[in-house]
Design a protein around this nucleic acid. Structure first.
Lengths: 248, 248
DNA sequence: TAGTGGTCTAGACCACCCA
DNA sequence: GGGTGGTCTAGACCACTAC
């Protein structure tokens, strides 16, 4: 059933997919400009763009605002239960990682935060906004929300280093439990700018709430990931960072 | 910085977002046709469509092929570690659930399946394809791949019922462990048709591998979710279906 | 059969990036 | 300053849905 002749969009998608799969177009390489591709496939920019958008949705290509289209990198495997040592996790996959602090300060918790963190209305929180780069590309924008009483003077520390490590070293804090939620959404405003994507681009949203060794809720993260940069990977039987399994 | 006047796309998006947030446009309601909206916002279909696509990416609206645009329903909360009793999980959230068997048969494992399921090349597997409906809407297309030796004659059973229950009842099988991966992708071919979405629409892909009470790998699922229909929700300390926590 | 979205044409101007 | 993608115009035909 439904054996229509392939649309132009499909044909263009196929052609580019083949080039990428064959390795002729390697990760990070820039595609020809939209206008050149139009000529190549003898079509208009609108049609061509529909094809590029479909490939973007699949995660095969990505764009940088007004710079062009590029072949996507392999996804990073990410287990959100291991907030611990994010940087080590990346390094183990032989990828380069960098963290930049974008902003820090105090905010009044939003209603959503109050609910997620079980706070009284109008509670103040520390906020730390960071940008994560993998292989030189901004792949996730992260907002951390911390209970201030648990982290005195933390905003004066070097926050470009591992937060987990800072927690352990200066606040005697080890995670005992995490819960997280994941859902697809779209980039808007600041997130879009920071990740260098067009407003409305698909992103993967991860929110996480963390508890310390006494079971106290200590902080919450909002992570905005480029949708093509990550693969969530969880094993119910994997060794947990807080060691409820034997060490190998 | 960057205080451009809002684009038409942004304005249309805002206007529709407000209508939806205020509840004037309720879940399931059909939007006016694209041509009507064009007149309403005094613009062309291309521009209007860009705005609708952005809202679709956010998960606020969805479309059905050539039927129109609709206001999205709340997301289903889904914990992939609880493959157990999917139907009960949905019912607990006061949503209607239905499962339809689309196809069954035997297939030769693809290379990807061989790797995920640790199979020798060219191994045969049972395949069960099902479609899941929530509140009457097709929200996920699921392919189950079963090791045949573990499930004799299962294809002759009623597969529209809970697979978990069938496993327990007829094959003395209880899950002891699951691992899963999640990543955003795009719908193509059969998946797009089954879920009634345009080829290239964003979807959320979940693959899961399951082990029985003896730790043996028994089956694997490929789940294709409408990206706006689901929110993944995992708690490292939650009670597991196989009971490594006290029962409440 | 009327109306819908899906696809497609052939242009245009603009903001921004880079050399 | 030349090239890029982002936005936008004003149409058209077609396949499919709902009636």
């Amino acid at each position: 059933m439904n054996d229509r002749p392939p649309t132009q969009i499909t044909q263009i998608r196929q052609a580019l997919t083949n080039q990428i799969d064959s390795g002729l177009l390697a990760p990070g390489m820039k595609l020809p400009s939209e206008r050149e591709l139009c000529e190549l496939f003898d079509t208009t920019r609108i049609t061509l763009k529909d094809a590029l958008l479909a490939l973007e949705a699949e995660g095969l290509i990505y764009r940088e605002e007004r710079r062009g289209w590029f072949v996507a990198y392999p996804r990073l495997n990410y287990n959100p239960l291991y907030r611990t040592y994010f940087q080590r996790m990346v390094t183990l996959q032989k990828r380069q990682v960098e963290t930049k602090v974008v902003a820090t300060g105090q905010v009044v918790a939003t209603p959503v935060l109050c609910k997620d963190m079980e706070l009284a209305p109008l509670t103040r929180l520390y906020q730390i906004c960071r940008l994560r780069y993998i292989d030189g590309r901004a792949v996730s924008y992260v907002e951390h929300f911390l209970k201030p009483e648990r982290f005195p003077n933390i905003l004066e520390r070097d926050l470009s280093k591992s937060l987990t490590q800072t927690y352990e070293q200066f606040y005697d804090l080890h995670f005992s439990r995490s819960r997280f939620e994941i859902y697809p959404s779209a980039a808007r405003g600041e997130v879009a700018q920071r990740l260098n994507v067009t407003a409305g681009s698909p992103i993967l949203m991860i929110t996480r709430v963390n508890y310390d060794q006494r079971g106290m809720l200590v902080d919450c993260d909002h992570e905005y990931w480029r949708h093509d940069a990550v693969r969530i990977s969880v094993d119910s039987q994997a060794e947990q960072p807080w060691g409820n399994e034997d060490q190998a």
